[in-house]
Amino acid sequence: MPLDTSTYALALLRLDGRRWNELRRIHAQISTQAAADGSSYLETGNTKVICTVAGPAESRRGGGGGGAEGNNASVQVEIGIAGFSGVERKRRGRGDKRTSEMQSTIANAFTSTLFTHLYPHSTISINLHILSQDGSLLAACLNAATLALIDAGIPMSDYIVACTAGSTSTYSSNDESADPLLDLNGTEELELPFLTVGTLGAGEKVSVLVMETRVQVGRLEGMLAVGVDGCKQVREILDQVVRRQGTRMLESVVG
């Protein structure tokens, strides 16, 4: 490691030279996979995710099975993590609990924002492929899924946008000078407390809030505020991506 997070205090610059409230570069594309009903490709820094959406389609497991509540569509999520995506080449088995937790988080989040009542007895399946990991993985997955669902044309009340927020203090110290940080990369995630927040659109409504590290309760408010604010910025960026894609489609139709 060249430096660690402790140098932050020297010039208020982070490991990769960002200030506390800067997002990493987000690059996103829609409709990248022709075969899928909806698809997207999203990069935040070195975290890279491809998402495809299939459906809404008739439940495969006929009868009462798949469409759990018969009147609404069910959302199913499958996450594949490429062996080469991390520092160490590692295959995650199907039963990996962290992955299944992410799957069910994403499914739960979209179940309550997609208009599932429009598609009774059907299934919407979201497939996420993680090509490269460098922090903010769950957030990237949520953002990619939003784009792919839009591409698939499934109505929703608003975008679900997510990002991470951390704090320069550790859990044990209660130092007041600690700054909140926006959008953590992999190294920062290893060292600092952080949370992933997913909001509905640009509002203050939080759909997903996951924190896995210890932090003083006093730090939390700042982290959450920065996270929610970050979500607003992310929504702006995703919205541009969608609009650009829309313009392009219109051009191709008109042109």
């Binding site: 069910s104 309550s112 859990y171 203050e204 409504k205 210890r214 003083q216 939390l220 505020a225 929610v228």
Partner: peptide, 23 residues
Amino acid sequence: GEICQIAKLGGVPTDALALLRCV
């Protein structure tokens, strides 16, 4: 007074301030 973990794994979108009150 340390928070070790928070898990709101999806579900209904809820006001951020309400969540902080829960904490």
